[in-house]
Design a protein around this nucleic acid. Structure first.
Lengths: 226, 226
DNA sequence: GCTGGATATATTGCATACAATTTATCAAAT
DNA sequence: ATTTGATAAATTGTATGCAATATATCCAGC
């Protein structure tokens, strides 16, 4: 039961679960037992159930009938599709941000960069991963297209999951500070450079993953001895 | 109460509501009363509620706290964002379809074209609108990227809503049979032509709408007399 | 006739109870 | 030791009941 008596909206529940997933506190594949979540959030299962259908629709959770909800375990193929989608969408985001961003927007982005730098200097790896994802969500927000914003709001948490699954655990934190370079290119209204940096950034993330070595999930047990 | 005793999954409920919206049987802005849906589908409100949160997450329905669920009324700005997103995504879909489509996929597309032609010859306007949307969803399916497929599954019903809102009611059915031209270009693996046709098609749809004349919804009553 | 406010009705929000189903436990058999 | 089957425990799926809130109705007052 929660200490406070404030009502917890199902969106808040979904968001807190999403944050936990982004910070790798909920690993891919783990089961989300309704009763446990209900008592953790101090609400009834009815609300948890709604939050879970919401998260399932977002793609962060998989619902197995009569068996429950599980944090999604994306396959390598899904990971590749995800990055293909991001390579398509994020250049458009950059173009729109350069077109529309006012000085306050740039300020917001720079505040975020500071948070990232802080987390990095503190070595808070979980916070780094979450903030890295949220940087891209913030960019999408500034770009001003609600559909693309929503899409990125789903792809970024999933990217965190994919990193949890396919990245070597001891990879040195995050590559480098490519985010601040992107922001600077945007501030200078250098579209070509900003897009190039963004695409390189995405390629760096994808290349650090081991999408070729098949996970247990990818093995087709039925077909193995066909 | 449903005649059959088959269990109705929440996805089915959501899908049937989506179809009704696509066919303009549920107009934008209409209230969806839980009790009425519950008896229409022969289930309890609990399940309806889950279907509605799902549809809200998809963006087809708006949830007003304590006031209920309403079929979304997209604004002109949202309509423009939607078409901008489709202009970004659908060329990628065409590229992937040309790369991946086998002969069975092409056959499926041609079967769909036949259905469209049939509906058109019968003058079944509602079915035409729904099938026109589903053509694009089918293309997305064939393209093989699950994220883009899901995105188009949300954008197409919304497009139908936007047409219901911003199109003149007596517009002559649908422009022409641009879909079959696109399929032929795909069958010939003519990427440049297929993409060009797709973009023209989207522009035709958007240009037939009256996105400049402000709807009642767009008027800012508070700011009017500022 | 229109406005304002009280009462009644309708509707949503939520928790709970119970049936259906799955998962875990444990003993017997090979 | 491993497997099989029966039983018990845990968990999900669903309907229902009640409180909270919003909407509609009605009637007095202007």
């Amino acid at each position: 039961m929660e200490a406070s008596s404030t009502k917890v909206a199902i969106e808040q529940i979904a968001e807190r679960i999403t944050d936990a997933v982004m910070e790798h506190r909920l690993p891919p594949g783990i089961k989300l037992v309704e009763e446990k979540l209900a008592s953790a959030f101090g609400v009834s299962r009815t609300k948890i159930r709604q939050a879970l259908t919401l998260l399932a629709q977002e793609g962060l959770v998989t619902l197995h009938p009569n068996r429950g909800a599980f944090v999604k375990r994306p396959t390598a193929a899904e990971a590749r599709d995800l990055f293909a989608t991001r390579r398509l969408v994020e250049p458009e985001i950059v173009r729109n941000v350069i077109k529309r961003a006012c000085s306050e927007d740039l300020a917001k982005l720079r505040v975020h960069l500071k948070e990232e730098a802080e987390a990095r200097s503190l070595g808070d790896r979980r916070r780094i991963i979450r903030l890295s994802g949220q940087f891209h969500m913030l960019l999408a927000q500034v770009s001003g297209n609600s559909f693309i914003e929503k899409l990125m709001g789903e792809l970024c948490p999933l990217t965190c999951l994919i990193i949890a699954l396919f990245d070597e655990p001891q990879t040195p934190a995050c590559p480098e500070d490519e985010h601040s370079q992107i922001v600077e290119a945007i501030a200078q209204r250098d579209e070509v450079r900003a897009i190039k940096l963004m695409l390189h950034h995405l390629e760096h993330i994808e290349r650090e993953l081991h999408l070729d070595s098949p996970t247990e999930r990818d093995i087709h047990w039925e077909a193995l001895y066909g």
